[in-house]
Simulated assay, not measured.
Amino acid sequence: MLTTTKAAERQAASALVEGRNSYISDLQAWHKRLQEKQVELESTFDLRKVNKWSVNVWDDYPEDGTTYAYVEMDAVPDVVCVDLLMHLLAYVKSNRVINDSDCAFSLRFYDSSSVYPALIGSREGEYSMFKRWEMTITGANYESLDLVVQELKKAPDFQGKPFKIYSES
């Protein structure tokens, strides 16, 4: 069937608007699901069920030497994760050995949908997406990162629970 150029342009513009609206709806739904999960985690979290705090210090990083550490426990809500990471950050800031490693440390909230928005809307893509608190480690190399991990293993307990610090990617 033949169509005019104007009709084809209208159809393309309509398809673009429909696609954009679908994407925005999918993005909003993903954020809403994660928010609802956090509300549920906060209401059901039981500190008595925690034996150790599992913290992964990511050991694969870009050339600028920035990596991160995060709480690798699905049943722990963000409000606890940020407190736990602030506890570790305070320990790091007061630790002479780590401070001599030339690494800089800070805290951030990372939302992978802001970096990989194209993953929204597919089950496989969304499976690898997350929002979480992270302690960033800047200026690291493999040697200094190993030192940081070894020193973090000596961090004092948080809420009466010890840490399980490890480094893997």
Rank of each mutant, 00 (worst) to 15 (best):
Cys103Leu: 04
Asn51Ser: 14
Met86Asn: 14
Leu47Ala: 03
Gln35Leu: 15
Tyr70Gln: 12
Ser122Glu: 03
Ile98Thr: 00
Glu36Phe: 09
Thr67Asp: 02
Gly121Asp: 03
Val115Gly: 07
Ile120Gly: 07
Met135Asp: 00
Trp30Glu: 08
Trp30Gln: 07
Ser144Thr: 14
Ser128Thr: 13
Ala140Lys: 05
Gly139Ser: 08
Gln38Thr: 07
Arg48Ser: 15
Val97Glu: 13
Thr138Leu: 08
Pro62Ser: 05
Glu40Ala: 08
Ser112Gln: 07
Tyr142Pro: 13
Lys37Cys: 01
Phe109Ala: 07
Asn56Cys: 09
Leu27Ala: 07
Asp74Trp: 13
Val71His: 02
Tyr110Thr: 07
Glu42Cys: 14
Tyr127Ile: 12
Asp102Val: 09
Phe105Asn: 00
Thr138Lys: 15
Glu126Thr: 08
Val39Leu: 13
Glu42Tyr: 09
Ala75Gln: 15
Arg108Cys: 13
Ala29Lys: 10
Lys93Trp: 09
Gly125Arg: 09
His31Tyr: 12
Leu41Met: 06
Gly121Gln: 08
Asp100Trp: 10
Asp74Phe: 13
Phe105Ala: 00
Lys52Thr: 11
Ser54Asp: 12
Glu40Thr: 11
Asn51Phe: 12
Thr44Ile: 09
His31Phe: 06
Val57Phe: 00
Asp100Arg: 14
Met73Thr: 06
Lys52Ala: 09
Ser114Asn: 15
Lys32Arg: 12
Leu41Gly: 04
Ser43Thr: 10
Ala69Thr: 04
Asp100Ser: 15
Gly125His: 01
Tyr70Glu: 04
Val97Met: 10
Thr66Asp: 00
Ser101Phe: 06
Leu41Tyr: 01
Arg132Cys: 03
Asp146Val: 03
Thr67Phe: 02
Ile98Ala: 03
Thr138Pro: 02
Ile98Asp: 00
Val148Thr: 04
Ala75Ser: 15
Ile120Cys: 03
